[in-house]
Structures are given as C-alpha cells and as structure tokens.
C-alpha cells in the first residue's frame, strides 16, 4: 500500500452466506490511472466497485481512498465528496428536468450556487446534452439517460470515478461517443476504475488492467506490461533437423516465457511453434538474426500482437484449468 494510491485495499473481503464475492483483494490504483476491471460474470467486479463506492460494507478488510481509511457505518462525508459512482443500472428522477436533476446532485455534493450553473453547462457539454437542458428526463432516450447519469456522476468533479459497466446496452455509435467522453475525463486528471465486458473499449483507454476470477484479483498490471508479458506471439517454423536445437535455444532465451507446439515434424520434434515473447518488435528481429546466425534454418517467422480479449480468454482458460 503506497501513500500516493487513490485506491488501496487490504485483504478486502465480502462474503454472502457461504459465497465469497470478493476474496482478500489487495488493489492499488495510482493517481491518473484508468484501471480496467475485467472478469467473467459473477467474478466479483460489481461487488468490489460497490464496496469502494460505500454502497456496501466489507465483511473484513480495509479500504483507503487517498490514504484515508473508510470507517465502517460512518458517514465518511469527506471521502464521499471525492468519489463519483455510476452503477450498472442508472435510476433517474423522471419527474425532473435535466437541469434540475443535475443541480440537485450538484447541491448534494456541496457545489456553491455560483459554481453550480457553470458546472451544469460544462457537464452537459461533456456528454453532448446541451440542447436537452430543459427537457424532462422521462422524455430522454436510453442512451441520453445513460449520458445524463455520467454527467450526474462527474458534476462535483470527483477525484475518483467508479464506473460499473457504463456502456452496456448502448449501440455501437453511442458506445464510441461514451468512450470518447471517458477519455476526456481521463485527460481532466480523474482517476478512473471501470468494469466492462467490452475489452476492445478498455484496451483503447485503460492504463492498467485487473482480472478478477471467483472473487480474487488474479492479475493487476499495467496494460503495456501485460501485452509484453502475455500478448506478443512469435510463430516460428523450422526445417526438420533444426527443431531440437530451436527448442533448446528457446528454453534458455530470457525473453521467451513459453511456447506451444503447433505441428510436429517427421522426426517427432517441433516443426512449428507458437512462442510467447516478452520483448519488443526489435528484439524479435534480433532473435531471428541470432537463430539464423546459430545455423537454425527458419522457414517461417511471424511477429503478432494479441488483443486484450485474446489474452483474457487465454489467461482465463489457463487459470480455470
């Protein structure tokens, strides 16, 4: 746990009867990060976000926001002012106008009258709802309501934004617009923790990724590190009598974290290998040069970058199995 972390948890656990929804999670999110939380349904993402937002209290464990501990069954008003929480459902007050709704939440978060009007204008511009300022909420479309919910979440300029499945149910265009808005918020310096099943979106703006499975945070790493460690694949095919030398060489290479035989040669050795490579593209080129120098006759050499989705599926499968 570092003092500078916006979110830090220590052995955070939430247990419902015998079911452990969040299991001894030690999470750390640093200032300015966009932390993407991924995992299969029922992995505990929503429960973890609810715990961080104080919508639920932990069974055991501690939460620190900006180094300040959340106190059980206490108002924690000072910390609440720093958090913006958007749950996966977004209930609104249908009887209010967009402006009245945003003003109400601004006032709930102690925005002064002078700030209020400015902030309402700013957040409406952020979510492109300026022309709906005086519309009644019940008259808005689902996408608009979802954007209004985001506007409500950021009206008080929180330091930490907790977004639980914010783009679920949106059409592709609305989803892209929504993601652009999140990028804007990131540029404004907000620390964001977001859960989503649409990994291509997260890949676009997340700096860090956490993978949850059965309540455990099984992976928490910078996205670039994850790509380097798990996401780069080399496809190497060699001639028959060179297969054994290649395998020996790969086993000793520091940038190779593993390999898988795809086709066997006539001699029973690896003819074609899928290699998990943690180096850069230039280092892959160096590897090819060295193989050739060592006298290994390479017939195919491909360098590919896996998507987050591919990595997640592969890692998820690996861990579950």
């Amino acid at each position: 746990m570092t003092e500078a972390a916006v979110i830090a948890t220590d052995q955070l656990t939430k247990q419902f009867d015998d079911y452990v929804a969040v299991d001894r999670v030690n999470l750390e999110v640093r200032p300015g990060e966009v932390y993407g939380l991924i995992g299969p349904n029922g992995a505990g993402k929503t429960t973890l976000i609810r715990l961080l937002a104080m919508a639920s209290s932990p069974t055991v464990g501690d939460i620190y926001i900006d180094g300040q501990p959340l106190l059980r069954n206490q108002p924690n008003a000072d910390i609440k002012r720093r958090i913006g929480y958007l749950p996966d459902d977004f209930p609104l007050y249908d009887d209010l106008s967009v402006q009245d709704y945003l003003e109400y939440f601004g006032q709930l978060y102690y925005l002064k009258p002078a700030q209020l009007n400015v902030r309402v204008t700013e957040v409406l511009a952020l979510v492109s709802l300026e022309n709906k300022r005086h519309s009644v909420i019940s008259a808005l479309s689902r996408g608009m309501k979802q954007r209004l919910s985001l506007a409500r979440t950021v009206i008080h300029q929180p330091r930490l934004l907790l977004l639980d499945e914010p783009v679920s149910g949106l059409d592709p265009i609305a989803r892209i617009e929504y993601c652009e808005t999140i990028k804007l918020l990131q540029k404004q310096g907000m620390t964001i923790l977001i859960s989503s099943h649409i990994l291509s979106d997260l890949e676009d703006f997340c700096t860090t990724i956490g993978i949850m499975e059965q309540g455990r945070l099984v992976e928490s790493t910078r996205l670039q590190s994850l790509y380097r460690r798990e996401g780069q694949q080399l496809l190497i095919a060699v001639l028959d009598n060179n297969a054994a030398s290649l395998e020996i060489y790969l086993q000793e290479h520091p940038l190779v974290s593993g390999y898988e035989r795809l086709e066997k040669s006539r001699s029973g050795q690896a003819g074609k290998l899928s290699v998990t490579f943690t180096g850069t593209e230039a280092e892959a080129a160096d590897l090819l040069r060295i193989l050739v120098t060592e006298g290994i006759r390479v017939s195919e050499f491909h360098y590919t970058q896996e998507t987050l989705e591919d990595i997640f599926v592969r890692l998820g499968y690996r861990r579950t199995s």
Binding site: K80, I83, Y93, F105
Partner: peptide, 15 residues
C-alpha cells in the same frame, strides 16, 4: 424500489 435512494445515501450530505 427504483434504486434512487442509494444515490442519496452515497452523497456526502448528512442523513
């Protein structure tokens, strides 16, 4: 029932 009360609960205003 609609869930809006939770948002009010999570605001920093005293109960």
């Amino acid at each position: 029932k609609s869930g809006t009360l939770n948002f009010i609960r999570l605001s920093p205003r005293p109960a």
